Simulated assay, not measured.
Amino acid sequence: MPVTAEPPDPPTLESVDPNEYEDAEVVGDTDYRREEIETFLREGAWAEAFEAWAADTDLDDDGFEIVIDIEMLQHFDFFWDGFADRVGYHAPGIPEDWKQRDLHPDLDSWATVSAINAGLTELGQQVCEVLYDEYIDWESEYEAPDDLPDFDD
């Protein structure tokens, strides 16, 4: 069931240390390049990734409407991980205590919570792929040492 919404505005990226997230780890000092990534998102990477994701997601329109209503998309974070030569991300999610928080009147089952959380994770990955494949041409900040063992033999 694809999502039939137009691409919403891309998130505004905040200056958060990615190591503060439970689902991300960046090794070494790095320039997260958020300003440049945010520019790429606004120049079309977000819309392109959203359209590809929306056509293939298991999240339905009702679940996506909840995402929009509680403004989850603005809590995405994307950053450059120069050590791993990749775009990292943090996807927002519905917390485990969603029932106690009464986040949304239509949020009424673990199946919906799981679909939203999985769908946003997939959207984050899609955005990273579009950014890396079509927008970013940065070189990794780190080079492997010359004395690494050769495992090809």
Rank of each mutant, 00 (worst) to 15 (best):
P2I: 04
P2K: 07
P2W: 09
T4F: 00
E6H: 15
P7R: 08
P8D: 06
D9P: 12
P10S: 02
P10K: 03
P11V: 04
L13Y: 05
E14R: 15
V16P: 11
E20Q: 12
Y21C: 06
E22Q: 14
A24F: 05
E25P: 02
E25V: 14
V27L: 08
G28Q: 14
D31P: 04
Y32L: 12
R34E: 09
R34D: 04
E35M: 04
E36C: 03
E38Q: 09
E38I: 10
F40C: 11
L41K: 14
L41A: 11
E43W: 03
A47W: 03
A47S: 15
A47V: 05
E48I: 07
A49D: 11
F50W: 15
A52P: 01
A52N: 12
W53V: 02
A54K: 09
A55Y: 12
D56L: 10
T57M: 10
T57S: 07
D58T: 10
D58M: 03
L59R: 00
D60E: 01
G63K: 00
E65K: 00
V67H: 04
D69T: 02
E71N: 13
M72G: 04
L73S: 04
L73E: 10
L73M: 09
Q74D: 13
H75L: 15
D77Q: 15
D77T: 13
D77K: 09
W80P: 13
D85Y: 06
V87A: 12
Y89G: 04
Y89L: 08
H90Y: 13
H90K: 08
A91D: 15
G93W: 14
G93L: 12
I94W: 02
I94T: 06
I94A: 02
P95F: 08
E96T: 05
E96K: 07
E96L: 04
D97H: 05
D97G: 03
K99I: 12
Q100G: 09
Q100Y: 09
L103T: 06
P105I: 03
P105M: 10
L107S: 14
S109D: 01
W110C: 00
A111W: 00
A111C: 02
V113M: 02
V113N: 00
A115Q: 05
I116W: 01
N117D: 07
L120M: 12
L123H: 11
L123F: 06
L123E: 06
Q125D: 14
Q125L: 15
Q125E: 13
Q125P: 01
Q125V: 10
Q126F: 02
E129Y: 13
E129A: 13
V130D: 06
E134P: 06
D137G: 08
W138L: 14
W138V: 14
W138G: 12
E141D: 15
D146N: 11
F151V: 10
D153T: 13
